[in-house]
């Protein structure tokens, strides 16, 4: 189990040239239960990496505390490092070592062998085993990701911390990656994973939506969706590009954004589809489809972050 209590970290970021961090207004507090996949979802700059680095004992918090299976990430960092597997956002294996050498190296560092824990990584490692003599630096993106995951797992960690493992990965490979995580979860590993892709929320047991160093909602994906309070409609017309602005010009329309081949709009309470349909007909649209829909996690994120 992971327990995070009132965690704060404020630091000067060389990258952005200003203060950044997490928990500035309210310290971050949350729990992750055994066997759970917990997703931290938010755009670049939300603070996901800072949080994960603290939990991986690589960064000291200013205040607050975090424990994993009862072990404090600051006081007992050496023990923490034995029970976690950490996959940073940037590929951090040894580029000059081969696939197999990297894996053997990480196994040795943790006083184990590839053979001892082969079962755990078999599914993933078998896909890159044909290339085991290739230098890690010469692997494609998808293969690097599989090797990094194998290396993070080779010492059979209790907790897996994955920082944006699917960024820049195509939709098919992303789905495969989440299928792999599902099988690891079934082995009882706690998985803490961050992503900027809102559609991956449904693959998590619980999620935290994060922006500007704060959690703005924490719940099951369904719980987040159930808490959505707006009236949400999907609208289609024969000209999607002009109807975006026309919809925004309607005074009862509160927000309007493109969602694939439809526009998602939120409207004033009491406004009816017939009224909107009439408004669009007056603007010259002939082919209008309006339906009430239930929100996606992306709709929820946008509703929670609107200024």
């Amino acid at each position: 189990m992971i327990t995070v209590d009132n965690l704060r970290k404020n630091y000067f970021s060389d990258k952005s040239g200003k203060f950044a961090g997490i928990g500035k207004e309210n310290g971050l507090s949350f729990e992750v239960n055994d066997g759970e996949v917990f997703g931290v979802i938010g755009p670049d700059g939300a603070g996901k990496t800072t949080l994960f680095r603290i939990l991986a004992s690589l960064l000291l918090p200013d205040s607050g505390s975090a424990t994993m299976n009862g072990i404090d990430v600051v006081k007992n960092y050496k023990q923490i490092r034995r029970i976690i597997g950490y996959m940073p956002g940037r590929f951090s294996l040894y580029q000059d070592l081969s696939v197999e050498e990297n894996l053997r190296f990480f196994a040795t560092v943790f006083n184990t062998t590839i053979e001892e824990n082969y079962d755990l990584i078999k599914d993933i490692y078998q896909q890159i085993e044909p290339f085991k003599t290739r230098r890690a630096g010469a692997l494609s993106g998808g293969m690097k990701q599989k090797l990094a995951l194998s290396c993070a797992l080779i010492h059979k960690p209790d907790v897996l911390i994955l920082d944006e493992p699917t960024t820049g990965v195509d939709p098919v490979s992303r789905k495969e990656f989440w299928d792999m995580l599902k099988r690891l979860k079934e082995q009882g590993i706690i998985i803490l994973v961050s992503t900027a892709y809102m559609d991956e929320a449904s693959r998590c047991d619980r999620i935290a939506l994060m922006r500007d160093g704060q959690f703005i909602a924490t719940d099951t994906p369904q719980g987040i969706i159930d808490a959505y309070a707006e009236t949400l409609w999907a609208v289609q017309t024969e000209n999607m590009s002009t109807s975006l602005n026309d919809l925004r010009s309607c005074s009862e329309v509160l927000s309007c954004f493109a969602f694939g081949d439809k526009h998602h709009i939120t409207v004033e309470h009491g406004f009816t589809k017939e009224e909107l349909s009439g408004f669009l007909k007056e603007k010259g649209y002939r082919n209008v489809k309006i339906e009430a829909i239930s929100p996606s996690v992306e709709d929820c994120f946008m509703a929670l972050t609107k200024d």
């Binding site: 938010g42 755009p43 670049d44 820049g168 954004f257």
Partner: peptide, 20 residues
């Protein structure tokens, strides 16, 4: 080339409005 990777949902859509 992947102009919107990691960008927040509202910004991503504003970006596409610039493309239009």
């Amino acid at each position: 080339d992947e102009p919107t990777g990691g960008v927040d949902p509202a910004m991503r859509r504003q970006f596409w409005e610039m493309i239009y």
